[in-house]
Design a protein around this nucleic acid. Structure first.
Length: 482
RNA sequence: GGCGACGUGGCCGAGGGGCUAGGCAGAGGACUGCAAAUCCUCGUACGGCGGUUCGAAUCCGCCCGUCGCCUCCA
């Protein structure tokens, strides 16, 4: 597959990607509601879209990647009832809602940074776009797609004959199955809030033509995507759990307000489970990313490096569910370590005069997998497939004549696209290397004198410091693992 | 109850009518003072029962099981 194809949730098919403007990609991905610690689900979603973002750039597209920060309007309860999530957390932590937003926004970025996720080009806050949200609600009222009821404004789903097209639902069936109480001032149970009047005690509220209140959850994404990407843009992504109602509502609002298609391609990543179970606070298995990184949770036996989690996620497809277990992570950790060693051997090779490496077939085998709806799992398979023999060739001293070109490609793919380049070792690298070499010289002498006791002691002691010693045919080599 | 996805060798995980995925773990061998590392070789797997077909893990039906959405979640 030489052209990039994307599975579009809207059409339930893989489609060739054709940008609205040649050479440019506008991508909006639903960001976090910043009221608690980031967890594995965030990791899966944002690692997936990170590689998508990176691959577009690799292909030469100029990407504008927008990801919102939801800091208002997301209610704890269903059917447009209940408390604002941030306000509730603020009460629990005895902080201002905006302190909660800032605190968890910082945490979010910090942990996404650790996962080596490139930051979005724009991270707009919902609370910073209240004016625009009010304007859009006004537009919808003018066009008779929304109505005011006692200071609340609801979107009228019956005014949109396409409502349900993303999630494949129809309104009549929905009604029968509705098992949540709905706000009594709605005309139709599936109508959703565009603006809510603030209850007494509600802290985050703004004046509007209808009431002192706050925006509904869905409207922020419609507004911010449009503001930064236009009324019609290329890609809208997010977790599959947001397909309904969130994304369905976004489409309804945007297309009825603007009378044109909203996003051309809808992409949804699948969910994460932990030991086969959905994560949830009530199940006691909600482990935050921070806890994974530190190992500080009763369900964890050890800590897991962000890079291992990233690699593990990329070994499955973004549209498949991912089950986390320490056994699976452990296998991923070994695999990643091997990949790092392979890459390092290649990257250290210089001045080749041997048979050239078949870079074109390597490149096309990897790219074709990514072009097929970003199949990172297969692409990683191809990386191993091509790079293992290359390492062998190099270790045999037969360094390919096109080694520089090969190195550039590997860096572009593994570092720039996958974000899995070997981690940088700290300073003093040269000194450490020299010291280890001195020890190994002593060890060589000991071995020549058949003083294996001393030789093995040096090796064991170095090993306990994370320095692996390997006696290869061409001489002793070492590797520092940390 | 409605909608949808999935069930692949010891584990993870792609694929998807006949053609090697890959990773981890494991076995044997080469190499080694012993190791480690590396290299070579090895698994004939697709939930169950039927059906379609020359041929099914891949298509169809039923059943079993898991998961998700329908309610906040990425």
């Amino acid at each position: 597959m030489s052209d990039l194809h994307i599975y579009n949730t809207l059409t339930r098919k893989k489609e060739k990607f054709e940008p609205i403007t040649e050479g440019f990609v506008g991508m909006y991905v639903c960001g976090p509601t910043v009221y608690s610690d980031p967890h594995l689900g965030h990791a899966k979603s944002y690692v997936s879209f990170d590689v998508i973002n990176r691959y577009f750039r690799y292909l030469g597209y100029k990407v504008r990647y927008v990801q919102n920060i939801t800091d208002v309007g997301h209610l704890t309860d269903d059917a447009d009832q209940g408390e604002d999530k941030l306000q509730k957390q603020a009460r629990l932590e005895q902080l201002e809602p905006m302190e909660i937003a800032e605190k968890y926004t910082y945490k979010y970025f910090k942990e996404m940074d650790q996962l080596n996720i490139l930051r979005p080009d724009i991270s707009p806050r919902a609370s910073g776009h209240i004016t625009e949200q009010i304007q859009m609600v006004e537009q919808l009222i003018e066009k008779d797609h929304a109505y005011v009821a006692d200071g609340n404004v609801y979107f009228d789903v019956t005014s949109d004959e396409e409502y349900g097209k993303l999630s494949g639902r129809d309104l009549e069936e929905q009604e029968a199955g509705v098992r949540v109480e709905t706000a009594e001032d709605k005309r139709h149970p599936s109508d959703f809030a565009l603006w809510k009047k603030a209850d007494e005690g509600h802290i985050m509220k703004w004046p509007s033509p209808w009431s002192l209140g706050y925006p509904g959850w869905h409207i922020e994404c419609s507004v911010m995507s449009t503001k930064y990407l236009g009324e019609n843009f290329d890609i809208h992504g997010g977790g599959i759990d947001n397909q309904f109602p969130h994304h369905e509502c976004e489409i309804a609002q945007s297309e009825n307000a603007h009378d044109q298609p909203f996003a051309n391609y809808w992409m949804h990543n699948n969910m994460v489970t932990l030991n086969g179970q959905k994560m949830g606070k009530s199940l006691g298995n909600a482990i935050s990313l921070h806890e994974f990184f530190s190992g500080d949770h009763e369900l964890l036996n050890e800590s897991w490096e962000p890079e291992v989690i990233r690699f593990f996620l990329l070994q499955s497809h973004y549209r498949s569910p991912t089950d986390f277990s320490e056994e699976a992570l452990s296998a991923a950790r070994s695999g990643l370590k091997n990949l790092h060693q392979i890459v390092k051997t290649i990257d250290d090779a210089e001045d080749g005069e041997g048979e050239p490496f078949d870079l074109e077939s390597c490149r096309s085998d990897i790219e074709s997998r990514l072009n097929d709806d970003f199949n990172t799992a297969q692409a990683i398979g191809q990386i191993f497939e091509h790079l293992r023999p290359l390492r062998s060739q190099i270790e045999d001293g037969n360094i390919p004549s096109n080694i520089d070109e090969v190195k550039a490609f590997i860096r572009a793919m593994i570092d720039d696209v996958f974000g899995l380049w070997p981690s940088k070792s700290g300073g003093d690298e040269e000194l450490t290397n020299s010291l280890v070499e001195i020890l190994l010289e002593i060890r060589s002498e000991a071995r020549e004198n058949k003083n294996f006791e001393l030789a093995d002691k040096i090796r064991d002691d170095l090993e306990s410091l994370g320095v692996k010693v390997m006696d290869k045919p061409g001489g002793t080599k070492f590797r520092i693992d940390n």
